[in-house]
Amino acid sequence: MIRKSFFRNESGATAIEYSLIAALVSLVIVTGMATLGDSIKTTFTGLSSRLAGKSVSSSDGGGSGGDLASGQKTTD
């Protein structure tokens, strides 16, 4: 009688299933963040280096003609 109730009780199996699902979702999130993290870092590094070397002039529609990196006026 105890064996039948033991094998029919599925509450432990359900908890294990939810734990496995949570572990898989966590693995997908960590893998995605690692992949996207490198891509985002590369994108922002490239953007930063392009902005540091670019001067904004009135012909570019930027307005004051100042250097973005140093804040000094540039002559074109």
Rank of each mutant, 00 (worst) to 15 (best):
V56R: 00
G37Q: 06
S19N: 12
V25N: 11
E17S: 11
E17Y: 14
T42N: 13
A22Q: 02
S55K: 01
S48K: 02
A23L: 13
K41Q: 13
I29N: 00
S57K: 03
T45S: 07
R50L: 15
K54P: 01
T42G: 09
T45D: 13
Y18G: 01
D38I: 07
G12H: 08
I29T: 02
T14E: 15
S11M: 10
L47S: 09
M33I: 13
S57G: 10
A22E: 07
S55G: 05
V28P: 00
G46S: 07
L51K: 00
E10N: 05
S19R: 03
S19P: 02
S55D: 11
S49W: 04
S19D: 14
G46W: 00
A22R: 00
F44L: 08
T43Q: 05
S48R: 01
L51P: 02
A15K: 10
L47K: 01
T31C: 13
V25M: 12
S26V: 08
V30D: 07
R8M: 06
N9F: 10
A13N: 12
M33N: 10
V28F: 11
T31P: 00
L36Y: 14
S11A: 10
L20H: 03
F44M: 08
T45E: 11
G46Y: 01
S11R: 08
A15Q: 14
L27N: 11
V56H: 02
V28R: 02
A52G: 05
V56T: 02
A34E: 12
G37W: 10
L27Q: 08
G46M: 02
E10S: 04
S11P: 01
S49H: 05
L36E: 11
S26P: 05
L51N: 04
D38N: 09
S26Q: 10
T14Y: 14
Y18H: 04
S55Y: 03
D38L: 10
D38M: 07
R50A: 15
F44R: 01
L36P: 01
G53H: 08
A34V: 13
T42H: 10
A22Y: 04
M33F: 14
T35P: 01
I29K: 00
L36R: 04
V25F: 14
L51W: 04
T14Q: 10
T31G: 12
T42A: 15
L47V: 10
G32V: 07
A23D: 14
L47C: 08
L47A: 12
K54A: 15
A23K: 06
T14F: 15
S11V: 11
